[in-house]
């Protein structure tokens, strides 16, 4: 048997395209072969430079704004429910340990697993919010109907007059160009206040109605308009949905 029987598999391993069976064999060999480990480390550095051979695109500024907003939201959410994130972190650790994820080539599986855990965590959080709303008798509903720009669109908004979060279910809104967002507005004393942007493809979106508390109106009016990506403080685009609380 040659000294380095799996040397031809090292490049595919570095590229992350070796199939599971060959990857396992190579990983076992890498544990005891410094030469192949060095070759792998060297080729991984080559692979890490491949993205630099692509044309680099200017990154739209709203993407960074959105990422920074999301990490702020996660940090706030984490500080509100430390026990939950502790449990989830422990679950991740147990899953990772249980699967014995080791060595470079298994990073892909580990990433996929973490991605799945994160998706489940987000789904769980979303469902918790939805259920909490449904149980509260003070929750109100508003129905929004499509205007000329989207006559077949409709939306339901579940909101609590004393809380910030609300749930928005939309149907029939056409997809927007990438530089645009749908933005929800709540009217307080006839003034439209921004209440969050949302993805028309999502089944339910959590939106913020922070300034709704204290609104004197018994029937609260809402609107959705098309705005620049990420939203704006005052409406500038055409209104596509309009309605009020029941």
């Amino acid at each position: 048997m040659p000294e380095h029987p799996f040397l031809d598999d090292v490049p595919a391993y570095a590229l992350g395209t070796l199939d599971a069976a060959d990857r396992k064999k190579l990983e076992e060999h890498l544990e005891s072969c410094d030469a192949c480990s060095r070759e792998l480390a060297s080729l991984e550095e080559v692979v890490a430079r491949l993205p630099y051979t692509l044309p680099q695109k200017p990154v739209p500024p709203y993407l960074k704004q959105e990422v920074m907003r999301r990490i702020s939201r996660e940090a706030a959410s984490s500080s509100r429910s430390p026990w939950r994130y502790g449990l989830l972190a422990a679950a991740c650790a147990v899953l990772a340990a249980g699967l014995g994820l080791q060595w470079y080539g298994e990073r892909t599986e580990r990433d996929a697993l973490q991605s799945e855990v994160r998706a489940l965590r987000e789904a769980l959080s979303q469902k918790d919010k939805e259920l909490a709303w449904l149980k509260d008798p003070r929750v109100q509903m508003a129905l929004l109907k499509g205007l000329e720009a989207a006559p077949n669109a409709k939306a339901r908004l579940l909101f609590h007059p004393e809380k910030e979060h609300a749930l928005l279910y939309v149907d029939g809104l056409p997809p927007l160009p990438i530089e645009k967002s749908y933005e929800l507005w709540v009217f307080v004393k006839d003034e439209p206040l921004p209440s969050g942007v949302f993805d028309a493809r999502a089944g339910a979106s959590v939106v913020q109605l922070g300034k709704l508390a204290g609104a004197p109106e018994k029937r609260v009016k809402f609107a959705v308009s098309i705005e620049p990506k990420g939203g704006v403080p005052k409406p500038t685009g055409s209104i596509v949905l309009l309605g009020e609380s029941l």
Binding site: K57, P60, L63
Partner: peptide, 25 residues
């Protein structure tokens, strides 16, 4: 790193909206 990551995601996905979403993830 965002410009290179966006270039990589765009190359694989060939769809700027998907690439931007993955970049955020």
């Amino acid at each position: 790193h965002a410009p290179v990551v966006l270039g990589l995601c765009s190359r694989i996905l060939r769809d700027s909206r998907d690439a931007e979403e993955v970049l955020q993830e």
